[in-house]
Amino acid sequence: MTHTPADPQSAPGPEQLREQVEQTRHDLGQTVQALADKADVKARAQHKTAEVREKAATKAGALRERAVTQASELKAQAAKATSQVHDKRPDAVKGTTAQAAGQVRAGAARAGRMWQEKAPEPLRQKATQSAQLARDNRTVLLVAAAGVTVLWLASYREKD
């Protein structure tokens, strides 16, 4: 592989040869590093895992945002439907409804007092925990109730 030039003036000098050797070493080092990177399966797998994890987190965030938006829209639709139902009720029904609601509240208060007096302590604790759970998840319960109301109203309209 040694090449002897015909013209002695164009022959590389020792300094040029050293620079070529250094350049060749540098190129060879980069090639070896590239091959080592390709051979490092663990690092490549970790990099791919990080990419997939990032994509999944992005998609989950988008899905969560869309679910919240849909829940808000459903809540607004339920409020509108409820308002429409209240507006369409005759005055006589409104008065009867208010009276019935008062009676239900009074009956519930009596039942609650009787419950406090007669129910065993472990049962009262469980009931208290269940009530707290319902209060903590009020939004979910309201959205579900709104969905049922919308479905009921839709089926009611189809019958007309």
Rank of each mutant, 00 (worst) to 15 (best):
M114N: 09
K94Y: 11
A34D: 13
A39F: 04
A43E: 03
A57K: 15
Q129R: 14
Q129F: 01
Q103S: 06
T96I: 12
R105F: 10
Q132N: 12
K118W: 02
T49A: 14
Q129K: 13
Q99Y: 10
L123P: 01
A106S: 09
V68N: 13
P122F: 03
K126P: 00
A39Y: 05
L133C: 02
T97G: 07
A109F: 07
E121T: 09
K75C: 01
K94G: 00
Q33P: 03
E117I: 07
E65T: 14
R66M: 06
G107N: 05
A67T: 09
A34F: 01
A43I: 08
S130E: 15
A34E: 13
A62V: 02
K126Y: 00
D37E: 11
Q70C: 07
A79W: 11
K42D: 04
V68I: 10
T97D: 08
P122Q: 09
Q125A: 14
A111E: 04
K80W: 06
A134D: 11
Q46M: 05
A60T: 02
W115H: 09
A60Y: 15
L123K: 13
T49N: 02
T58D: 11
T96Q: 10
L133I: 02
A76D: 05
Q132Y: 05
D136M: 10
P122G: 03
V32C: 04
K118D: 00
R89L: 14
E51T: 06
T31C: 05
R135L: 09
K126R: 15
R53Y: 08
T31D: 08
D87G: 13
V85M: 13
Q132C: 07
Q103A: 03
A100L: 15
A67C: 11
E54D: 15
Q132R: 11
G107Q: 07
R66G: 01
T31E: 15
K88Y: 00
V52T: 12
P120A: 06
A71E: 12
Q84N: 11
A109K: 12
A101D: 08
E54W: 04
E121Q: 12
A79N: 04
P122H: 09
G112M: 04
Q116S: 14
T96L: 07
A34W: 02
K94E: 00
K48V: 10
T96S: 15
K48H: 11
R44M: 06
A34V: 01
E117D: 08
L63G: 05
Q99G: 04
V93W: 13
A127R: 09
A50W: 01
E51G: 08
L35I: 09
K48R: 14
A100D: 10
K118V: 12
A71Y: 07
S72E: 13
D37T: 05
L123Q: 09
L123N: 05
R66C: 03
K118C: 04
A106L: 04
K94N: 02
